[in-house]
Write a protein that binds this DNA or RNA. Structure first.
Lengths: 214, 214
DNA sequence: TATGAACTCCCTGTTTTCAGGGATGTATTT
DNA sequence: AAATACATCCCTGAAAACAGGGAGTTCATA
């Protein structure tokens, strides 16, 4: 019995690459490829009876990213394994994924052999994380003994995003249908929370967090 | 006689993918793969007599990026073609590449077929740019009719840097031993020159130009 | 049911930024 | 000799941001 695998990546060329790597492996049957998580969720929804063993996914994709996809899959289909293959190694994302029970994480600059090893381990029921990823995860956990309790609320993120996009308080208020006082409160809270002095600091944070494009 | 191709990409998995796509094409011989431009330049330097027809390269790589690589190759080996395959579609980079006579540009989310088409065209001596890339290039050219003559003076850079570091006008004046009026003039000129509305815009520019750390 | 978190709105007063001018001196280049 | 680029400084008035308060609502959860 072959293992059924789904691959999700918005870079078709990479997808093709993965496909040709995996198609040399007789144990693996590529059920489906897609360029975002939404398509997968729909597919799983419709084909409930189909056996899916593994979903290999990128993180940054349009419509639905790999993190959301992983969360949804793990919530509803506990028997489907997930392997993230990503270019970025952002501590927070790694953290979120691990907390959401992802089965593996391999950076895109890994060797083909490592990818195959990861897939094999995961299909056996083990977890597989590249050394690089484990290091980042641990380093993050150790250095951030509860320091990183900076969590912005949805509304705060709305506001800081618009600030970084060069909008004034009044404009933001209009856009979000809020009083300008409210927006001012958010700005103030943001500055306190993030320990910055002014809009320059807020803008840098928004960029760092990828709230706006670089 | 086969075409000799070199592939440069720091994402090994992507590299493997490209390799397996191209290895199905009997006309192509993959001479070498590398994960940054430096390795290629060294290789070309040592193997001057070797026929190299095409270099396929990513843009963002450690050590030496694809833009520098293209420039160097075009300066020294006019007969080597270059094809950029990149995830990003930044107008400025596209512009620089085209000015430096790159032979093609295909985004990483292109179909395998398009990549092969691009390679074939380029080897025939034509240029190949994906529609997406052409659009970005044109859009940029049309909107930026000579706009890109933005050159900041030393003093302007001093000021914008300190602004992005969250200093007020008065603080900057003190630091640079200037009157606060002077600093205000600089800030104003900066905003006009860079076509931004406020400190958020200035900060983003300073980050983009690497005046301050990311 | 009480607590807390998130969201919303308001006030006062000060400081800074923004928008729009203008001006002088010193180089360098044409 | 004139034009240009750069650096420096000044002014006014309006708009926005900053600082430091308070306070009501809803909603989930302990």
């Amino acid at each position: 019995m072959k293992y059924n695998i789904i691959i999700v990546d918005d870079h078709k060329m990479f997808l093709d690459g993965l496909l040709s790597i995996l198609s040399n492996e007789i144990d693996y049957n590529i059920l489906l490829t897609a360029k975002n998580g939404e398509q997968i969720i729909k597919y799983l929804d419709i084909n409930k009876e189909e056996k899916v063993d593994l979903i290999i996914t990128d993180i940054s994709m349009p419509e639905m990213d790999g993190i959301t996809l992983n969360t949804l899959v793990k919530e509803h289909n506990r028997n489907i394994k997930t392997l993230v293959v990503s270019m970025h190694s952002d501590p927070d994302r790694i953290d979120t994924l691990i907390e959401n029970n992802v089965d593996g994480y391999v950076p895109k600059n890994a060797e083909k052999q490592e990818l195959l090893k990861a897939i094999k381990s995961i299909l056996k029921g083990e977890k597989y994380f590249s050394k690089e990823i484990k290091d980042i995860y641990l380093e993050n956990k150790l250095s951030n003994k509860r320091k990183e309790e900076i969590k912005l609320t949805k509304r705060e993120i709305d506001v800081i995003t618009l600030i970084a996009l060069e909008h004034t308080t009044q404009e933001i208020a209009d856009k979000l249908f809020l009083s300008k006082h409210t927006v001012e409160s958010y700005r103030k809270n943001l500055m306190t929370k993030l320990n910055v002095r002014n809009i320059a600091g807020l803008t840098k944070y928004a960029l760092k967090m990828n709230y706006i494009e670089h």
